Structure formats: structure tokens, C-alpha cells
Amino acid sequence: MRHDPERDAAAYLAGELSTLRRIRFERHMLDCRACWSEANTAREGRILAESLREAAPASTRERIRAVADVPAESPVRQRARWPYVLAAATAVLVVLAAVVIPQVIERRQPAPLVAAAALLKSNALTLSREPVPAMKTIGAYGWRGTTQRDLAGIPATIYDYVAPEGRRLLVIASSQEFPRARNARDLDPAPSWLARVDEVSLLCADKHGLSWLAAATDDAAALRAGRALGLT
């Protein structure tokens, strides 16, 4: 029997078949590898799209719904435009992947780095005047105090700096090595790196037997701190 697996699978998954035709097609798929493959691939694509949709921001989901919200058409016209629907679905998946995957990577950053980023944003450190850092000023930033913290299992000494307009910079030192961020890019000298973690720029380098982090609101400030401290 000659048939179109793509068309038949699309009609089956869209619920266009009558009860009798649906039963017959399900029996037919047991012996037809092409129809089974078409139906299974389309079903897996729908599941993947749903999983990505749940993780996507609300604004992205609304844009995709607007694109997908087309008027009802006859089964014949729906089958005629099936290739275009597949192309549109592929484009939607590409957009979702571009939006969602970076967010997933961001959520899975090592806990000590997430903790360091949170300290910069909290602005609620209890500071003391000891120990004094080797550099009391880094560019426009002036040292205002030091604290000792455990960053998700890594003991650290944290030097807090502030600029006249209120921007903050943290310089963090530990005898234990900080884990590498998943989205890090290498700096010179290796194995120094720079990454964005939870909207905070982190520069990491090892020097004098210690592991160092510079946490700033932007990459430029983190890089300036790294150069001033001789880390890069």
C-alpha cells in the first residue's frame, strides 16, 4: 500500500483521524518502520519543546504562543502546510535553546562562586579592620574592611572595596582552589579565567600559594582589579 508516512503521522498526532482510522493506523505502525519513526520523532520533538518551554522566560513563551496562534484550517490545508509548521517548530526550538541553555548553565555554577557573587550583591557584610590588605586602594576603589567567610565549603578572607559613587569590589583569597566557572574564558597567564556568575563578573587566578577571586559588577572592573593585584 502506497502512503505518505509524514502526512499520516501528522494527521494521527493532530487528532484528525476518526476512531476507526486511528485504530487502523496504530496497527499499521507496528509493521511500518517509516510511519513509526515519523510519529515517534514528532512526539519526542513535542516533549522536548514542552520541557524547554517550562524553563523559558514568560516573555519568550508569550512570543512563541503568538507565533503559533494561527486560525483553524481544514485538514487538507493543514496537511498542505505541514512542512512549514515543521520549519517553524525547528526555529522555535533554536530560539528556546538560545534562551534557556545559558540560563541552565548559569544555575549550575559551582556553589562557592554563586556564594561569592551573592556577597557582592548583598552589601551586608560585617567588616573589621584586620587583616589589612596589601593594597588599600585599587583604582577608584578604597578598602573599607575585611571579613572571614566560608563560601560553600571554601574558607576565605574577603576584602571589601567601594568606589565614591557606591560601586563595590570584593577581593577574596583562600588557601583552597576555587572551582572554575562553567562559562569561563581563559586569561593570560593560564589558568586564570573570567566569567559572569549570577550577574557578577568573577576573575580567578592563583598567586603566592593562594587562590584569588575578584568580584565586580562588570568585566572591566574585575579585569582592572586583576591587573592591579598582579593576578593577570
Rank of each mutant, 00 (worst) to 15 (best):
M135C: 03
A220E: 15
T157G: 01
R185Q: 15
H208W: 08
W193K: 04
L202Y: 09
L210M: 13
G142P: 00
V104S: 10
E130L: 10
A220Y: 11
L203Q: 13
G209N: 12
R185P: 00
Q103H: 08
R196N: 08
N123C: 04
L119P: 00
I158A: 06
D186M: 12
G226H: 13
I172G: 00
G142M: 06
E177L: 08
D206L: 09
G166H: 09
L170H: 03
L120V: 02
L229F: 08
L169R: 13
A205Q: 07
K207G: 00
L127K: 01
R167A: 14
A205N: 11
L194C: 08
L203I: 05
K136F: 03
R129H: 07
A215N: 09
A228C: 07
T137F: 04
F178I: 03
V114P: 04
L127E: 03
G166N: 09
L119A: 04
L125T: 01
L151R: 02
T147Y: 06
D219M: 04
I105W: 14
E165G: 06
R185H: 13
A215K: 10
E130P: 00
Y141T: 04
A134P: 00
V200C: 07
T147Q: 06
A116L: 08
L169Y: 03
A140W: 02
A216F: 03
L213D: 09
A184K: 03
H208T: 13
V171I: 13
R144P: 00
I158G: 04
R224S: 14
S122D: 15
A111E: 15
E130A: 09
A173I: 01
R107F: 07
A118I: 01
P131G: 02
A115I: 03
R107Q: 14
L203Y: 15
L223G: 04
K136M: 09
S192W: 12
I138A: 03
S192V: 07
R224I: 04
W143E: 10
I154D: 11
S211M: 05
S122T: 08
S175V: 10
Y141E: 05
A140G: 02
E177C: 01
L113S: 10
E130S: 12
T126L: 14
R129K: 05
R168G: 02
T157V: 15
S128W: 01
G226S: 13
E199A: 14
L187P: 00
L202R: 11
A184W: 08
P155Y: 11
A216Y: 01
F178N: 06
L113M: 14
A195H: 13
S174K: 05
L229I: 11
R108Y: 14
P164N: 07
N123V: 08
A222P: 02
Q109G: 06
V162S: 06
L125A: 09
G209A: 12
D218R: 12
C204Y: 05
A140C: 00
N183C: 02
P131R: 01
Q103F: 01
G145M: 06
F178A: 01
G230K: 15
R129C: 03
E106T: 05
V114C: 13
G209R: 11
E199N: 15
A118T: 05
R180W: 10
D206M: 10
S175A: 14
D219S: 10
A117S: 15
A134M: 05
P133D: 12
R167W: 09
I154R: 02
K136Y: 02
K207T: 03
E177A: 15
A111M: 14
Y161C: 09
V104P: 07
R227I: 13
A221W: 03
